[in-house]
Design a protein around this nucleic acid. Structure first.
Length: 213
DNA sequence: CGCCAGGGCCATA
DNA sequence: TATGGCCATGGC
């Protein structure tokens, strides 16, 4: 890991501790949550998940009628697209017999292409599923990561693809490390750096402040 | 009230 | 390929 990235990571880790992160109980719940949280507050996703009554499984989603699925996930917004996307994602999972280990034996690049081919799944959602659901070393470059790159002097580029390859080429290819790093970025963003100006108790405050951000 | 939240698709030019 | 409108709810 480069010096600058190491400093960033260490500061976040010292301040927040090991996050070991994604608030979900199962692999499939992570997959579904990744879709439901697209441009949507996590509190709304929780409401949608709660509407499954603890029965958020691929078998359940396959069995649920499309119209009823819309109604269940309504609190997460954009429910027409997301319901179709959930169905497509579940069909994809069914191709592997809902078997996590079988998915993990496939080449990551191929899985990513398959996910990106599904309507409603783009780069951020695909990477979240690969990393947080299945434990592949695919770095997630989401809105929080882009915002951090705009503030912290990494010179990582401006778009999702550039930022993703920036981190992946400079961090050891380790899924747990990717997990911690991105989780820390999100936790920091939620806790301190939601918008300008940064608050003084943000562990990145001095560096960002020096840049006038 | 208006803004925005852990995006992505689609229509334009 | 690069923008911009759109989806849609709930919290603030």
């Amino acid at each position: 890991m480069t010096e600058r990235l190491n400093i960033l990571y260490s500061r976040l880790l010292d301040h927040y501790g090991d996050p070991r992160w994604w608030p979900a109980g199962s692999v499939y719940e992570v997959m579904a949550g990744a879709v439901l949280t697209q441009n949507t507050a996590w509190t709304n996703v929780q409401k949608a998940i709660a509407n499954f009554g603890g029965g958020l499984s691929p078998q359940a989603v396959e069995a649920i009628d499309g119209e009823r699925l819309k109604d269940i996930i309504r609190p997460a917004g954009s429910f027409t697209r997301k319901s179709l996307c959930l169905k497509a994602l579940t069909d994809w999972y069914a191709c592997y017999g809902y078997d996590d280990e079988r998915v993990r034996r496939q080449p990551m690049a191929r899985l990513r292409d398959e996910l990106l081919a599904l309507k409603g799944i783009g780069p951020e959602t695909a990477d979240s599923i690969l990393l947080y659901a299945f434990g592949f070393p695919s770095f997630v470059a989401d809105a929080y990561t882009l915002r951090l790159c705009g503030r912290y002097p990494l010179d990582a580029g401006g778009d999702v693809h550039a930022v993703k390859s920036f981190f992946e080429s400079r961090i050891p290819r380790d899924a747990l490390l990717y997990n911690r790093f991105h989780a820390l970025i999100v936790i920091n963003a939620k806790a301190h750096c939601r918008k300008k100006p940064l608050c003084a108790d943000c562990p990145l405050y001095d560096t960002c402040e020096r840049r006038g951000l």
